[in-house]
Computed example of a mutant assay.
Amino acid sequence: MNSPYSQKIVQPDISLTICGYSKVLEIVSNKWTGLVIYAMEDGIIRYGDMRRRIEGISKKMLTQTLRQLERDGLVNRKITPAVPPIVEYSLSGLGESLLVPMKALNQWTKENYSQVELARENYDRINSGE
Score class of each variant (00 low, 15 high):
R125W: 11
E130K: 12
Q64G: 05
I44L: 08
A119E: 07
S58I: 13
N122T: 09
K60N: 09
S58R: 06
G95F: 09
M61S: 12
I79D: 08
R71T: 05
M50K: 01
K103S: 14
R71E: 05
Y5C: 10
G73Q: 00
R77G: 00
L69V: 07
P85D: 09
V75D: 00
M50N: 00
A104L: 13
K110D: 03
I57A: 04
M40Q: 01
D72Y: 01
S90N: 01
N112I: 08
E117W: 15
I57S: 03
V116T: 05
L118T: 14
I37D: 00
K59S: 14
C19M: 10
W108M: 12
E96C: 15
S29D: 02
I27M: 04
P4C: 14
G73Y: 03
V100A: 08
S58E: 10
E55Y: 12
P81D: 14
Q115E: 06
M50A: 06
R77Y: 03
E88R: 01
S128T: 08
E88M: 03
A39G: 02
R51N: 06
P85Y: 13
R120K: 03
V28Q: 00
P81W: 14
L105G: 09
V28D: 00
D72P: 00
G20D: 15
I14Q: 05
L35E: 03
G93V: 13
L105E: 11
Q107E: 08
K103I: 15
V10I: 13
R67G: 04
